[in-house]
């Protein structure tokens, strides 16, 4: 799980071209939208694309997406839940 979160943070920084931010600057439970990283609705679409490209997970329901993209922790838990046991 820790390795997955570390990898996810690096992928988020690369996909969203976050300037001057390192993976260690992103807290696991910090909100990605609003206060935390200050991401917006276009970024949420980019994160959906990230999940599909890197983890082959397609989020069909936008309401589900809101919960999944709350933080790095919630994204990692979702990815792990979709991976074969």
């Amino acid at each position: 799980m820790e390795e997955l979160k570390k990898q996810l943070k690096a992928q988020i920084i690369e996909a969203l071209n976050l300037q001057d931010i390192k993976p260690e600057d992103i807290e696991d439970n910090a909100p990605l939208f609003g206060e935390g990283l200050g991401l917006d609705s276009i970024d949420s679409l980019e994160l959906m694309v990230l999940l599909e490209r890197h983890y082959q997970i397609r989020v069909e329901d936008p309401r589900e997406g809101r919960k999944i993209l709350q933080s790095v922790q919630s994204m990692a838990e979702f990815i792990q839940s979709k991976q074969p046991a």
Partner: peptide, 13 residues
């Protein structure tokens, strides 16, 4: 590359 799926919205916009 992604077979018309998983397309990033930003370059399209």
């Amino acid at each position: 590359q992604y077979n018309e799926r998983a397309l990033n919205p930003t370059p399209f916009i």
